[in-house]
C-alpha cells in the first residue's frame, strides 16, 4: 500500500503555521514513515508530480498568484485543510480589508515615514509580480475546503493529532489543551 501523499503551501502566510508543523519536533521522523511529501516549501518540489491526498494550506489569498496556487492545490489534492487563521478567515493580512488598497500601497512605497529614496514615487508594477486583490480572501471563499485547523498558529500537537487521525481514519480527540488559544 503506498503511503499517503501530503503537500503544503504558504499563500499569504507568515510561515508561522509551517513552523508549527515543524514544532512536532522528533515526531517528524515518524511522519516520514507514515507519509510522503510532494510540493512544499520545505522541500524542493515546486510543481505537483503526482496526485496528492492531503493538501495543507497556510495563509489566505492576497494576490492573483495565491489564487492560482490555491486552485492548483484544489485540482491536485483529494482533501484540503485550511491551517491557521489566515487560511480560515483571512487572518492578520485581512486587516487591510477595510482600507482601500491604494492607501496601503501609498503608505508602503511613497508616503511612509521611513521611505526616503523613492523620490520618483515609483510603485512596483513589473509584469512578473502577482496582482493584488481588492480584498484578502480566506481560502474557502475561493475553493472548497474540507477541514479547518484554527489557531494563530495552531498548536503543533493539534496538527499532529489531526494528521494522524486523517491518515489512520481514527476519530480526532480534542482535549482542552489542544484547542485553547493563548
Amino acid at each position: 500500500m503506498s503511503k499517503p501523499v501530503i503537500a503544503t503551501t504558504s499563500l499569504a502566510g507568515c510561515f508561522g503555521c509551517h513552523m508549527s508543523i515543524l514544532d512536532i519536533d522528533e515526531r517528524i521522523l515518524q511522519l516520514f514513515d507514515l507519509v510522503e511529501f510532494n510540493k512544499s516549501p520545505i522541500d524542493d518540489i515546486k510543481k505537483f508530480t503526482k496526485p496528492v491526498d492531503i493538501g495543507i494550506i497556510e495563509g489566505g489569498c492576497c494576490n492573483s498568484e495565491n489564487v492560482e496556487v490555491l486552485k492548483d492545490f484544489r485540482k491536485n489534492c483529494k482533501i484540503l485543510i485550511s491551517l491557521g487563521e489566515c487560511a480560515i478567515m483571512g487572518g492578520l493580512p485581512a486587516l487591510r480589508n477595510g482600507i482601500p488598497v491604494e492607501e496601503c500601497l501609498h503608505e508602503a512605497y511613497i508616503g511612509g515615514p521611513t521611505v526616503q529614496l523613492n523620490t520618483k514615487h515609483i510603485l512596483p508594477n513589473d509584469d512578473e509580480l502577482p496582482m493584488l486583490l481588492d480584498k484578502v480572501y480566506p481560502c474557502h471563499e475561493i475553493v472548497k475546503i474540507d477541514y479547518y485547523l484554527p489557531g494563530c498558529p495552531p498548536r503543533a500537537d493539534l496538527i499532529w493529532d489531526a494528521l494522524v487521525a486523517l491518515i489512520t481514519g481514527d476519530p480526532l480527540k480534542l482535549p482542552y489543551e489542544l484547542i485553547k488559544f493563548d
Binding site: 491604494e102 481588492d134 474557502h140
Partner: peptide
C-alpha cells in the same frame, strides 16, 4: 461558487500602480 471574480478584484491595485 463563492462569487469570486478575479478580473474585477485586481482592477483597483493594477490601476493604482499603473499596469
Amino acid at each position: 461558487d463563492q462569487g469570486f471574480d478575479m478580473e474585477a478584484s485586481v482592477q483597483a491595485s493594477c490601476n493604482y500602480v499603473g499596469r
